[in-house]
Design a protein around this nucleic acid. Structure first.
Lengths: 210, 210
DNA sequence: AGTGCCATGTAAGACGTTACATGATTTG
DNA sequence: CAAATCATGTAACGTCTTACATGGCACT
C-alpha cells in the first residue's frame, strides 16, 4: 500500500461522486497537472472494479442510453481516506528529463547552445500555461477549500521559480556567461578522448565500406 | 523509446565507465535525488545486459576476487546519447502525495492542523537536507560542468521556493489565517453530509454488534 | 569473528501504458 | 451527417519493485 492510485481515487471521489471518465479527465486538468501526471483507462477502470469489490466504493448505474457508472465512497472508503491522510506523505518523486540532459550536455554537445535554448523555450511554453491556469484558478475550479489553495500556492511558487530560472538560463547561454563548474581531477579531457576514440573507430569502418 | 532508464544509463556512463552498483549508488545521491528518483537492481542489471547485447555498451570484467563488470559506451552508445540529447525533453512528471492530501484535507479532517503541520515539518527536513547538499555541491561532486551547474540551479531555486512556502504554510495553519478558497455552488455542506451519512450507517451496525 | 559495504543477479508479482473494440450523445 | 466528446472495458505488453540468493572485502 505504498503507492496510491487507490488513494488518489478516494480523494477525488471525496469531492463528489464521479465516473471513471470524469476522474481521468478532470484530475489530469486540475490536480494531476501539478502534482501527479496522467491516468490511463487500462489502469483506472479495473482499479475501480477492484475497489468496489474491496468495499471502498459503491456504484450506481445511471441508465439513459449511455451506460455510465457513478462511484461513491462507502464508510470503509471514507475511513481508508482518513487513514491515508494521517500517514506521513512520501517525499515527492520528480522525473525531469531536461535536468538529466543538462547534467551531461557538455560531454556530447559542448557549445551547442541553440538546441539547448530550444529545449528551454519548449519547457517555458508548458510551464507558462500551467502558471496561467493556476493564476485563474477561480475560473477553472468550481470548488477548492483553504487547504487546496495552500497546495496550489506550492505549485505556483515552484512554477514561478522555474520561469525565472528559464529566463536567466537562456540569457546565460546566449551571452556565453555560464557559471563555471568543478573538475577536481581534470577529467574533461579524458571524457572527450573516450568519446572521440569510440567514434573514430566506426568512422574508419564507414569509410572503408564506401 | 519514451522512457529512459536506458538514456539515464548512457548519460551516467558518458561521465565515466562504471559498474551497475556504482550507477545506482552515485546516481541516487546526486542527480537522482533532484531529478529522478531511485533505481532498483532488479531493473538495472538486466537492462545493462540488454544494452550490451544491443551494442550500446561494452563491458570489461575486472578480476580480483570481487566480480565486477565495468561498462563503457560503444560508438553506437555515444550516438544514441547524442540523439537523445537532441530530442525535446518530456515535460517533468511530479508525484507529490502531500499536494494530493492538501487538495482533499478539509473534507475528511477540517481543523486538524496539527497532523498537517507534522506532515509539513517532515517534508521540510528532507527538503532542507537536499538543499544543503546542493549548496555544498563542490564537496559532493568531483565533476560538474557549466551545464550541470545550470541544472543544479534549477533544483535549488525550486527547493528554496518550497522551503519558503513551508514556513508560510505552517504559520498560516498555526494562526488559522489561511487564504479562503472558492465554493461556487456551495457544495461543502453536501460533502459533509455525504460523509456523515456514510459513516453513521456503520456506526449503527457497530453499536448493534455490541 | 562480526558488521557493514561492495557487487551481481534472478523470479514473482505489482503496476502501468498502449492499442483495440464498442457504442451513445452532442455540436457544428 | 460528420466529427468530437462521452463512456466503458479488455488483452498484450512493458516496466519496476520486492524479496531472495550469493559471496568477497574492509574494518574493528
Amino acid at each position: 500500500m505504498i503507492m496510491s492510485l487507490e488513494h488518489l481515487i478516494l480523494g477525488f471521489i471525496s469531492m463528489r461522486p464521479a465516473t471513471g471518465y470524469e476522474i481521468k479527465s478532470e484530475f489530469e486538468q486540475q490536480v494531476g497537472a501539478l502534482a501527479w501526471g496522467s491516468l490511463s483507462y487500462g489502469n483506472l477502470y479495473p482499479k475501480l472494479k477492484e475497489m468496489e469489490q474491496k468495499g471502498w466504493l459503491s456504484s450506481k448505474e445511471e441508465e439513459g442510453g449511455r451506460n455510465k457508472k457513478v462511484y461513491e465512497l462507502t464508510a470503509e472508503g471514507w475511513k481508508e481516506l482518513d487513514v491515508w491522510l494521517g500517514n506521513t506523505p512520501d517525499y515527492p518523486v520528480v522525473k525531469d528529463e531536461l535536468m538529466l540532459k543538462l547534467m551531461v550536455w557538455g560531454i556530447s554537445r559542448p557549445h551547442d547552445h541553440d538546441s539547448l535554448i530550444q529545449h528551454l523555450r519548449s519547457r517555458e511554453v508548458k510551464t507558462r500555461e500551467l502558471f496561467k491556469i493556476g493564476k485563474n484558478f477561480q475560473d477553472h475550479f468550481t470548488w477548492m477549500d483553504e487547504y487546496g489553495v495552500l497546495a496550489l500556492e506550492l505549485g505556483m511558487v515552484k512554477l514561478e521559480a522555474e520561469l525565472e530560472w528559464i529566463q536567466s538560463a537562456i540569457k546565460k547561454l546566449e551571452d556565453s556567461s555560464l557559471t563555471p563548474g568543478v573538475d577536481k581531477w581534470n577529467i574533461t579531457p579524458t571524457q572527450q578522448q573516450r568519446r572521440m576514440s569510440a567514434l573514430e573507430s566506426t568512422e574508419m569502418e564507414e569509410k572503408s565500406n564506401e
